[in-house]
């Protein structure tokens, strides 16, 4: 599998990209602060400054753009687009996810730092939507990465998305949006599910 990557990137012989660039350590859950006041304060900060990584996998992503325009303007609520997974905390899956896309979703998800939240946008992420019997699109997103909020609809309007953001903020404030820790605790189950559909796993086991 690493041979294939080497060939694509044209890197010298004997250079193992995966061991060189990526860590093979398993993720470990990091519990939130034990002090109640500090924890609440951190949750408040997390809820009021959410950096969004929008992943336009399907048609749902078309409903993300109006959110940043004059009509809906989510920057009022402290939500900003951030095009890099390292800095963002909310990962929005915009619609159906094919198997090939799932690879990218998993890699991007694992690169986000610990308090990370996932929003499934559209019916396709809930139960497959209109692609429920397709050979190539997943049915339930929460079997591959932990999902905090689903916004149902085909397509959901930007107003529904804003309602979803409100719900997510409530969850963060209550300290219930612990998707990253869930992922780390049930790492084997998630990896099994991911590997069941991704047959040629030509990427690192865990790419932080």
């Amino acid at each position: 599998m690493s041979d294939e990557i080497k060939k694509v990137n044209g890197i010298d012989e004997g250079f193992d990209e995966i061991s060189e660039y990526f860590c093979d350590a398993r993720p470990s859950p990091v519990s939130p602060s034990a002090n109640r006041i500090v924890r609440n304060f951190q949750n408040w900060a997390q809820a009021n400054s959410i950096f969004i990584l929008g992943f336009g996998t399907g048609c749902g992503a078309i409903e993300l753009r109006p959110l940043f325009t004059a009509r809906y303007d989510v920057s009022r609520y402290g939500l900003f687009p951030r095009p890099t997974p390292r800095q963002s905390s909310l990962f929005i899956i915009g619609g159906y996810a094919s198997i090939k896309t799932m690879k990218r979703i998993i890699r991007s998800y694992e690169q986000i730092q610990n308090p990370k939240f996932v929003m499934g946008l559209g019916s396709c992420t809930v139960n497959g939507g209109m692609y429920w019997d397709s050979y190539n699109t997943i049915n339930r997103l929460d079997h591959y990465i932990p999902v905090d909020v689903y916004v149902a609809g085909c397509m959901p309007r930007p107003e529904s998305l804003i309602a979803g953001f409100d719900r997510l903020k409530e969850l963060i404030m209550e300290g219930k949006a612990e998707g990253a820790n869930t992922y780390a605790e049930n790492f084997d189950w998630y990896k099994n599910n991911q590997k069941k559909i991704i047959k040629n796993w030509n990427m690192p086991e865990y790419n932080w």
């Binding site: 090939k100 019997d133 397709s134 050979y135 699109t137 997943i138 339930r140 991704i198 047959k199």
Partner: peptide, 25 residues
């Protein structure tokens, strides 16, 4: 990528059955 079994657009391929077996309906 990494497809096993008969190609999916052939009519003897049961896409609904495949989806139910693979994708956790």
């Amino acid at each position: 990528e990494g497809w096993e079994g008969i190609p999916p657009m052939r009519r003897d391929f049961d896409t609904k059955k495949y989806s139910e077996e693979t994708f956790f309906p």
